[in-house]
């Protein structure tokens, strides 16, 4: 019948999407590896940054499947500990951007008028800059650190969610059930919390899932140029940056494995987001009920 989004059936369709399911499984594995890194590797200390100069620049072997770096640190361990920062960075950036953008966009869309004008012009200003450049500028101004990089990226990202939330709210505002709620005298605050917010969260969550991969990439970019995670800790961007000097001299493993980690993780988030989008939208499922 009508296009309705329901959590149960969304999950049903999602679990029938092999690509999405595989992506989800992959991401869960990466996340588990990050969380349980100390238990999974004998080189936990190296993963946290301690050097082991006796073992430097080992090429991939049984003992060190991904080789070791110039300070003798096992690359598998570094990757697992790096995943903590890279993954959390991606997720936190998106969560922060949604937390700022979604309420502002919803309020702008619901209230309209001058509130809408002012809020949307502010987002326009943010959107006028290339996001990476703006993030670099903010991160540089705040000083290089994990948390500042996170703040810098989130600051360039929230306007997209504000726009999305606003456009969703604008179309919801005209729905009969919003009008019905107004006609029984429900206050605006309650309408936004009960009737609008839950309904706009589906497209926002979809967009957010798609964006986590990109956020990891951008965060890696900042780390690559030294504005993100600082030594002795590592994230995947730092690892690529550290390894790049040795790439041509034959120590290819240093940059390649973190590069692949970023590549597959970003792609998995994209496939997953796409799967959620299709599963949550009855029109894309092409099965009538």
């Amino acid at each position: 019948m009508r296009a309705r989004v329901e959590v149960g059936s969304t999950l049903w369709y999602l679990l029938r999407d092999r690509v999405a399911l595989f992506s989800l499984a992959f991401l869960i594995l990466v996340a588990l590896a990050a969380v349980f890194a100390p238990l999974l590797t004998p080189y936990a200390a190296q993963g946290m940054g301690d050097p082991d100069l006796a073992a430097k620049f080992r090429s991939p072997s049984i003992e060190h499947p991904f080789g070791t770096d110039g300070l003798g640190r096992d690359q598998v361990a570094r990757l697992m500990f790096g995943a903590r920062r890279s993954l959390s960075m991606g997720v936190f950036v998106v969560v922060a951007a949604i937390a700022i953008g979604a309420p502002l966009g919803t309020i702008a869309g619901y209230l309209g008028g001058w509130v809408d004008e002012v809020l949307m012009r502010i987002t326009d200003i943010f959107l006028a800059f290339p996001p990476l450049l703006l993030a670099i500028a903010i991160a540089a101004a705040l000083g290089a650190s994990y948390i500042n990089a996170l703040a810098a990226i989130a600051a360039t990202w929230w306007p997209w969610y504000a726009r999305l939330a606003r456009s969703q709210t604008l179309s919801l505002r005209e729905r009969a059930y919003i009008e019905a709620a107004r006609s029984i005298g429900v206050r605006d605050r309650v309408i936004i919390m009960r009737h609008i917010f839950p309904n706009i969260m589906t497209p926002i969550v979809v967009q957010g899932t798609l964006d986590v991969g990109t956020a990891i990439l951008v965060a890696a970019g900042l780390s690559f140029i030294g504005l993100g995670t600082q030594a002795p800790y590592a994230d995947w961007g730092v690892m690529i940056s550290d390894g790049r000097l040795f790439f041509l001299s034959g120590r290819w493993w240093l940059s390649t494995f973190p590069g692949l980690a970023i590549f597959f993780t970003a792609m998995a988030f994209n496939f997953l987001g796409d799967g959620v989008r299709v599963a949550a939208d009855p029109r894309l499922r092409r099965i009538q009920s």
Partner: peptide
Amino acid sequence: FSTPFGAV
């Protein structure tokens, strides 16, 4: 029709 809930 085949649907998630069975044949209609």
